[in-house]
Write a protein that binds this DNA or RNA. Structure first.
Lengths: 153, 153
DNA sequence: TTAAAACCTTAACCTAAGTTGAGGTAAAGT
DNA sequence: ACTTTACCTCAACTTAGGTTAAGGTTTTAA
């Protein structure tokens, strides 16, 4: 009985995960090293994954798209159960927290946008009052710095 | 007649600019090296700045806050006049362009936020339709590479 | 059975946006 | 005059999020 037939359909190799998720194998190594995903090894020392990893990677990618760092994702993943496969409720909780974070970031961006013409365009440069010029103003609660978004053209 | 009395109020040293703008001296060196700001040298080889530099730095900081990179700022600065000090209109044009960019980014973030619970929380992971899972998504429109959908779990 | 494809590890490299430190000069305060 | 502060250059280091390459092993397909 081969290793692969023993674990049919429930086990993924690194290359298969990579192709399926649209990331490079090296990225999966990297995520594992950072503690974002887990794997075990087969007899030949090759990585094997549970299907659950696919969702994790998708969530990582989704989070990055909205400007959430890998470290933040890692923290969020700590809320997932360790012993069992996360349920839909687990994932929903996680994403609803991020929704709120996003709400805050959107509101903040809107505020900055509204100040933009006033502060850059006018002559006053009111550094003390304007959020655009306030160096201590750290995007909401987390001190994340500016939201890095993908280039949209 | 000293160098400083000759140029009083119209000339800034690097330390004064740094303190006024809330950045480090090394940051100003860095910005200069990147072509974002300019200076000339006094007899002792020390940097001197026109007051205009304060606005440039403020604009750089404001831009960074909304997620605009130094490279993008540099490009935007190319639209400023080289021979004369930029007027309010020059700055207003620059900032109104960024306002539009911000509008797009905000709209994009809102879209992603709205998909967040659906895509992360639900069981389907519809990778072909959802912008959260679409790796090539530059705000819709373009057809992207195929992401093969198989069932997860 | 053998060749190709996939996998392994480790190390070095990449960009962005700076920061830090060493070693030396200039300007300012007393 | 002298001492402290400010400034200079250059090189190396930092973090995030990976990518690439080298050299070796395992798995798979013909």
């Amino acid at each position: 009985m081969t290793e692969s037939s023993k674990t049919t359909e429930a086990t993924w190799s690194v290359g298969r995960v990579a192709k399926r998720c649209g990331v490079k194998v090296s990225t999966l190594h990297f995520y594992e090293q950072k503690g974002l995903i887990k794997s075990w090894r087969n007899d030949g020392n090759q990585r094997r994954y549970k299907p659950e990893v696919l969702r994790r990677i998708s969530v990582i990618k989704a989070a990055q798209k909205v400007g959430i760092s890998l470290e933040e994702v890692k923290q969020a993943f700590l809320s997932l159960p360790d012993s069992r496969t996360p349920t839909m409720e687990d994932w929903q909780l996680l994403s609803s927290n991020w929704q709120q974070l996003l709400d805050a970031r959107i509101a903040y961006l809107q505020k900055l946008r509204d100040y933009m013409t006033g502060c850059i365009g006018c002559g006053c440069l009111s550094m003390t009052k304007c959020p655009l010029y306030n160096p201590e103003d750290k995007l909401g609660a987390q001190g994340t710095g500016p939201v890095i978004l993908e280039q949209i053209d």
